[in-house]
Computed example of a mutant assay.
Amino acid sequence: MLSLPEGQRSELIDGALSLKPRLEHQRMVARLLRSFAAAAPESLEVLPGANLLLGDHLLMPDLVISDDPIAEGPALRAHQVVLVAETAGHGLKRSLYAQARVPFYLLVEGGEAVLHEWRDGEYHLSEKSDAGVLRLRRPFAVEVTLGG
């Protein structure tokens, strides 16, 4: 029997247990959620901690933006996802998002954010935060204050 700390978010990826910080992590996810939800067009749905099935891997990105707002079931699939956001880097997860060709991958770490866009068979740097503020033009216009 696997016993995990009460209330701690965790993922099991290729046999490795990944525990995420609690309050700081949740505050950042809340900031991302508020900003993205306010700016997203009605055709998109912004979900915190949604299950995402990529092949044999069940992941839980910190934030998922889906272009299938009527999706039902236990998990989204890559073809239903426009953007995934993570608040801590994990090379394997980035690799899995790339293999699944998720169009946008946002990584927020240490008060900085970088948006990667899938094109020409790999992720390319698309946008980067400046002075604690992330301004995106794609997949839609949004501004996120990372600190505070």
Rank of each mutant, 00 (worst) to 15 (best):
L53R: 15
L76N: 12
H124W: 14
V102D: 05
D62C: 02
V81I: 11
P48Q: 09
A85W: 04
V46E: 00
S126N: 11
E72D: 08
R138Q: 15
Q80A: 08
R138K: 14
G49Y: 10
A38M: 04
A88D: 10
S18D: 10
E122I: 00
L83W: 13
G89M: 03
P5H: 03
Y97P: 04
V29M: 08
H124V: 10
A16P: 00
S126V: 04
L96I: 09
G91A: 13
Y105F: 14
L106W: 06
E86K: 06
S10Q: 03
A141S: 13
S35R: 08
A38P: 02
L125K: 06
Q8N: 04
V46Q: 00
G111S: 03
L106C: 06
A113Q: 12
E109L: 12
V81Y: 07
Q26R: 08
D62T: 03
L106Q: 07
S43Y: 01
S10N: 04
P61Q: 11
R34L: 10
L125Q: 09
R119N: 01
R94S: 01
R22I: 11
L54C: 10
S95T: 04
L136S: 12
L115G: 07
P21D: 10
V108Q: 09
F140I: 10
R101Q: 14
A98T: 00
V46R: 00
L115R: 07
I13C: 11
I70A: 08
L134P: 06
V29D: 06
L59A: 02
G111C: 03
W118T: 05
G7K: 03
W118C: 01
E127P: 03
H79D: 14
M60C: 11
L83A: 08
G73Y: 05
M60E: 13
V108H: 04
T87K: 01
A78G: 07
L76V: 11
A98Y: 00
L106F: 08
L12E: 13
V82W: 01
A38T: 03
L58I: 09
E45C: 14
Q99C: 00
Q80I: 05
P74N: 10
G89R: 11
V114E: 15
G147V: 12
R135C: 12
I13M: 13
R77V: 15
V29I: 13
R9E: 01
D68V: 15
R137D: 14
V142C: 15
R34E: 07
V84W: 02
E6L: 02
A16K: 14
V114H: 15
G15Q: 10
E127W: 15
I65G: 04
L33H: 13
L107G: 05
G132H: 06
P69F: 08
S66Y: 04
E11Y: 04
E112S: 07
G147S: 10
L47G: 05
L53E: 14
H90Y: 10
A71V: 09
E112K: 11
L23Q: 15
R9H: 07
L53D: 09
L125Y: 03
V81N: 09
P5K: 08
E109K: 13
M28P: 00
V108W: 06
L92M: 09
